[in-house]
Amino acid sequence: MKKMLILAALVGLTASPAQAEHWDVIGTKLKDTCPIGKYMAIVKDFNQWGRSYGYTATILTPIQDQDQTMFWWIGKTENAAKFGAAWDAWRDGLSDPNSTPAKLQARFADCATNHSRSGYDAW
Rank of each mutant, 00 (worst) to 15 (best):
R107D: 15
P35L: 02
G84H: 01
C111D: 02
A18I: 06
G84L: 03
D121P: 00
T77D: 08
S116R: 02
S99P: 03
L94T: 02
A9K: 00
K76H: 11
H22W: 08
W73G: 09
G75H: 12
D96H: 01
H22M: 12
W72K: 12
I59H: 08
T100A: 11
A122N: 12
L104F: 10
A9M: 15
Q105Y: 09
Y39F: 15
L7I: 11
K2L: 05
I74F: 11
L5G: 07
K3W: 10
V43S: 12
A15V: 13
I74H: 07
K76P: 00
F108W: 08
P17F: 02
Q105F: 06
G75P: 11
T113M: 08
K76S: 14
D96M: 02
P101M: 01
L10E: 02
W73L: 06
A122P: 00
T14V: 09
T69N: 09
G54P: 05
A85I: 05
D24V: 06
T77Q: 09
D45G: 03
Q48V: 08
D65R: 10
T33K: 10
R107K: 15
T61G: 04
G50E: 04
T33I: 11
G84R: 05
D45K: 11
Q105M: 08
D24R: 08
W23K: 14
A89K: 04
Y120K: 03
F108A: 05
M1A: 10
L7Y: 14
Q68G: 00
L60M: 14
V43Y: 14
A8F: 12
P101Y: 03
N98M: 12
D65S: 14
T14Y: 06
T69S: 13
S52E: 15
W123M: 11
N47P: 06
R51W: 00
T113Y: 00
R107L: 13
K103S: 05
W87G: 04
N47E: 07
T56W: 07
G119E: 01
L10K: 01
D65P: 00
A20H: 04
Y120Q: 03
T14W: 09
S95E: 03
L13E: 01
W49T: 04
